[in-house]
Amino acid sequence: MGIIKAEDLSYNYIKLGEDEKTEEVSEAVRNVSIDIHAGEFVAILGHNGSGKSTLAKHMNALLLPTEGTIWIDGRDSRDEDALLAIRQTAGMVFQNPDNQIVAGVVEEDVGFGPENMGVPTEEIWERVDRSLEAVGMTAYRKSSPNRLSGGQKQRVAIAGVMAMEPKCIVLDEPTAMLDPGGRREVIRTVRELNRKKGITVILITHYMEEVIHADRIYVMDEGQVAMEGTPEEIFTQVERLKELRLDVPQVTELAYGLRKRGVPLSPCILDEEQLVKEILEVRAGNVHNA
């Protein structure tokens, strides 16, 4: 079993109907089964309202399934005694950088998680030092979060999760409110944690460029898993992605367009260098054939 495994997970929101008496059930997540292995970098794509955020909140037991089960490192999220253990295993970073920083000083915010876990004082300091180092924010440790840029705030939030020494980080649209520079900063940090520290990363986003390096992608639609596969497998299906209100990176789109017009390129090109290489080969082939 993987570090996060869901089986037939469904989640229903209940809200009042138009007449304010009857209850309407809206299914945010329907029969989702996923299995994420330790050390993987998994991306979850989906348009606004596709249920990807709701699914993410199950991985931290912030929401409990209406039906089905989700296990985090083997623990059933409905097991109340395991709640804190689950939250330490799978830390969460949210979309709005302002609304997840608790303390008025960077280092104190990073220490917030370990404090809640009851970690002894000296160890908290060690963890804070290590986490700030890992996200490259040591220089700002005494700063007020209000003075940081969006990307820096998100890195502080990531450090706050790292200080809990989780096996897995779930990032729920961490870049949605950032500018391109901030987005790059956050993605670079997350990829590094995955590669160097072996942290399992689950990245939820609708920026296609951010997921081309993922090991695996799930695409959500109407609360269900609509597609699953490697980035190459997913981004070959340009039309299907557009149906799901998504897109492909420009490189892929260009390659797709050329291929449609008869240029013999590989079915899915995600990488700029690869595209350049293949186009050159096509040209050389043309010359050769002639």
Partner: peptide, 23 residues
Amino acid sequence: TVAEAEEAILCTLNGTNEREKAT
């Protein structure tokens, strides 16, 4: 834009084709 790039690349590729065929 993607559309422009597509045209430009095709243009070069076909250009080569035609030139090569012409000789």
